[in-house]
C-alpha cells in the first residue's frame, strides 16, 4: 500500500506542470490542454486523500470533476474555434485589447 503523501506529491507535480504549461505556452489549444493536465493532478489527489479518509467521497468528487472537465473542454474548444475565426491565428498574444 503506497502512502498517501506520495500520491499527493505526484498530484501536486502534475498540477504544477499544468500551471507551467498554462502560463508559458502561446498556443491556445495547448493552454487548454495544460488545463486538462491540472485536472489530472487534482483527480489523483482527490482519490488518494479519499482513500486516506476511508470513504468514497473523494472518488465521487473526482467523478463529478470528470463531468466538469468534459464540459469545460467542450466549451473551451468552441471558444478557441471562435477566436481562431476572429483573428486567424491561435496565438494567445493576438488578444491584447485590454492592454493598459
Amino acid at each position: 500500500m503506497v502512502d498517501a503523501p506520495a500520491y499527493v506529491v505526484v498530484g501536486a507535480l502534475l498540477f504544477s506542470l499544468g500551471v507551467v504549461g498554462f502560463l508559458s505556452r502561446r498556443n491556445l489549444i495547448v493552454i487548454f490542454l495544460s488545463t486538462e493536465l491540472m485536472f489530472q493532478g487534482v483527480v489523483v489527489n482527490l482519490v488518494a486523500l479519499g482513500r486516506l479518509h476511508a470513504n468514497l467521497d473523494g472518488q465521487v468528487f473526482a467523478l463529478f470533476l470528470l463531468v466538469i472537465a468534459a464540459v469545460e473542454a467542450g466549451l473551451a474548444l468552441a471558444l478557441v474555434v471562435l477566436m481562431y475565426r476572429r483573428r486567424g491565428t491561435l496565438d494567445a498574444h493576438a488578444w491584447q485589447t485590454m492592454r493598459g
Binding site: 494567445a92 498574444h93 488578444w95 485590454m98 492592454r99 493598459g100
Partner: peptide
C-alpha cells in the same frame, strides 16, 4: 510607469494570480 504592467494578456494575469 504602471501602465506597462498591464499587458492585456490573459497569461500575464494568470501568473500574478498563481
Amino acid at each position: 510607469m504602471l501602465r506597462t504592467w498591464q499587458g492585456g494578456l490573459l497569461q500575464g494575469y494568470a501568473v500574478v494570480m498563481v
